[in-house]
């Protein structure tokens, strides 16, 4: 296990290094770094000063070294728009995105697993077919359009829920969260549902396929022959066995939820880092874009690493293969 963990860790560091090279190439070699990192409204003296500070007059490998040092010490330049360090701006917005992503995942799990189980146990009934038809629709509907329609129905037509923003927040350990106030929950429902829809469909399909496969196994037949009540067969024998792939997918999809939050946040004006990215792109606030990029890459590599380790802990077969 330790061997595997260390190897996987080394892999992650290597990926991080490659990604930093790619980002660097994107910003410094393809684009013009003077345009990207220096405020277009800056005067001559300021431009010269920034060029010197970022080392843009040095050779390329030296620039990369300065870039790396900056990235590791959290100095990614100041936002043109807000005039505070870009990285601070990202961290300020991160809790909102994480809250949205976790809430969406929670909705997907709480609804997806029971629905998938139901569809898997009764694949030919109208309810099973209905659930599957719904999941196909959930896969095909573009997230942003569903968001618009949710706003149209629940906010504009029915007037039940607010359209934009985060509502009242409460500080927990200095981090503002929405889900502890009634107003916050009301603001959270629509965006979280919107973001959850795709993952919900995915979980339904995954659970259904796993259930159908598990129901044909000998251990299910044996449990039934032994006289175990059907509800126990499902809970103890079927559900436990299909949970491992589900846990993995849930973990891996968390990263993609954070990425897709960009869309949902834009539709619902949710003040997370995805909305920040789009706003920054629109006003060409490039240090923030670069900072977002590095943060999200780091986050992804971290999540992938975590899921791999968790999976290994859950399923010993993987560990044995990895140790070889």
């Amino acid at each position: 296990m330790l061997n595997f963990t260390l190897r996987r860790l080394a892999q992650s560091v290597a990926t991080l290094f490659v990604m930093s090279l790619l980002v660097f190439t994107g910003v410094y070699a393809i684009g013009n770094p003077v345009d990207i990192l220096i405020n277009p409204q800056a005067d001559q003296a300021e431009i010269a000063q920034t060029i010197a500070r970022l080392g843009l007059d040095r050779p390329l490998w030296e620039q990369y070294w300065i870039f790396l040092k900056g990235a590791f010490s959290g100095d990614l330049g100041k936002s043109f728009a807000a005039s505070i360090p870009a990285i601070e701006l990202i961290f300020e917005r991160m809790p909102a995105t994480l809250e949205l992503a976790f809430m969406a995942m929670l909705i997907a799990i709480v609804l997806g697993i029971p629905l998938g189980l139901l569809a898997g146990l009764k694949p030919d009934s109208w309810i099973g077919r209905g659930i599957m038809a719904g999941s196909i629709l959930g896969f095909s509907l573009p997230t942003f359009w569903v968001g618009l329609m949710l706003i149209m129905v629940f906010s504009v037509q029915l007037g039940w829920l607010p359209t934009t923003g985060r509502g009242a927040t409460v500080d927990v350990f200095g981090i503002p969260v929405s889900f502890l106030t009634w107003d916050g929950i009301r603001h959270l429902i629509l965006p979280a549902t919107n973001l959850a829809l795709f993952k919900l469909s995915l979980l339904i399909r995954l659970t259904r396929a796993g259930t159908r496969e598990a129901m044909l196994q000998d251990y299910v037949r044996y449990a039934r022959a032994k006289g175990v009540p059907e509800s126990n067969v499902v809970r103890v024998h079927v559900l436990r066995n299909i949970l491992i792939p589900i846990v993995t997918v849930v973990g891996l999809e968390l990263g993609s939820l954070i990425a897709f939050a960009v869309v949902t946040e834009t539709v619902f004006a949710w003040p997370g880092m995805g909305k920040l990215l789009i706003d920054s792109i629109n006003v060409l606030d490039r240090p923030v874009i670069v900072a977002y990029l590095l943060v999200i890459v780091f986050l992804f590599i971290f999540i992938n690493l975590l899921v791999d380790l968790l999976y290994t802990a859950l399923d010993p077969r993987v560990r044995l293969k990895g140790a070889r």
Binding site: M19, A259, V262, I281
Partner: peptide
């Protein structure tokens, strides 16, 4: 492998943000 470990929308967003 590296590219497929990131969701398509993120890769596209990053590219368009830079270009």
């Amino acid at each position: 492998d590296l590219q497929l470990s990131f969701p398509a929308i993120l890769v596209a967003l990053i590219l368009l943000a830079l270009t």
